[in-house]
């Protein structure tokens, strides 16, 4: 039996690698030019679930929401040890803010059923909002434990967890099911297992095949088809999804005009820098 863990993961543009090539003329980011990666903290969330499975027994289900390409993070999760992977994809989910996103994800979790833990990364690097985890917990009507540092123990329907409280920690005891958000210091994610890689590398979601491609039927026959759900499968109220379900609206996007006043170029030489230090002492910035 053991514990059933659901992990919510996201594929994100690699914001750490925004280079000149990834910028458009108008100064916005060309997402297509950025590599898409497994959101870093979500890998730690997956590891926490796998740790529960290793230490206390159970299964791990991974859910992601995104375009068909996001199935990459599902495969990456299967390579590391997840047992089941589901892609949530639906055009009508486009434009969802965190509230609508958490509604959709919580409907998916509720559809999977019978879970003891829901793990997510604390936040995704493309927004840093850290909202979706707690919002899902509220929608599922379960407690939340944020910023997991360590899984201390799980016994029966209770878990003892250490959480980071910003300059310190705290140990809490929580009833199950619980939603837990995970930070990087919680664990060291295991590497991809070669065996699991071989076993799962051909797994695809239906939308990754061209319509009516014979390969699709083949994948189905081989057991290589991953689950793909839309909003209907999770019985979502469309009024709560996408733009309609998102109270926050972008009113205006402005590019910033940088002020260019009183700029002095300083030579990178001993001479130049001595002059600068002298100037800063004179105007009392230093000393």
């Amino acid at each position: 039996m053991g514990y059933h863990c659901i992990v919510l993961v996201k594929q994100v543009p690699d914001t750490a690698n925004i280079t000149g090539d990834a910028m458009k003329e108008d100064g916005t980011v060309n997402r297509a030019a950025l590599p898409a990666i497994f959101n870093p903290e979500d890998i730690h969330a997956l590891e926490a679930a796998l740790e529960i499975k290793d230490r206390f027994g159970g299964t791990v289900t991974v859910i992601t929401m995104g375009p068909p390409k996001a199935a990459d993070v599902l495969r990456a999760s299967l390579y590391r040890g997840a047992d089941r992977a589901i892609l949530l994809t639906d055009r009508r989910a486009a434009g969802s803010d965190t509230l609508a996103t958490s509604y959709i994800l919580s409907q998916a979790v509720a559809t999977v059923e019978n879970y003891d833990f829901v793990f997510c990364g604390r936040q995704a690097i493309d927004g840093d909002t850290a909202q979706v985890g707690p919002q899902c917990a509220e929608k599922l009507g379960i407690p939340q434990v944020t910023y997991l540092e360590k899984i201390i123990d799980v016994q029966g329907k209770k878990a003892t967890l250490r959480r980071n409280i910003g300059g310190g920690w705290e140990d809490v005891e929580t009833p199950l099911p619980v939603l837990v958000t995970v930070i990087e210091s919680a664990n060291t994610p295991r590497p991809v297992s070669a065996k699991r890689y071989m076993k799962n590398k051909y797994k695809r979601v239906p939308l990754e095949f061209a319509p009516d491609a014979p390969e699709a039927a083949e994948a189905e026959a081989q057991g290589d088809m991953l689950e793909q759900w839309g909003l209907d499968e999770i019985h979502a109220d469309l009024q709560r999804c996408g733009f309609a379900g998102s109270p926050t609206k972008v009113f205006r996007i402005q590019s910033i005009v940088l002020k260019k006043e009183g700029f002095a170029s300083v030579e990178p030489t001993e001479e130049g820098i001595r002059g600068l230090v002298h100037e800063l002492i004179e105007d009392r910035t230093l000393g």
Partner: peptide, 14 residues
């Protein structure tokens, strides 16, 4: 806003 020299203004009309 994510990336670029961009500032976004968000509102909640409802």
């Amino acid at each position: 806003a994510f990336g670029g020299n961009i500032i976004a203004t968000i509102i909640n009309p409802a």
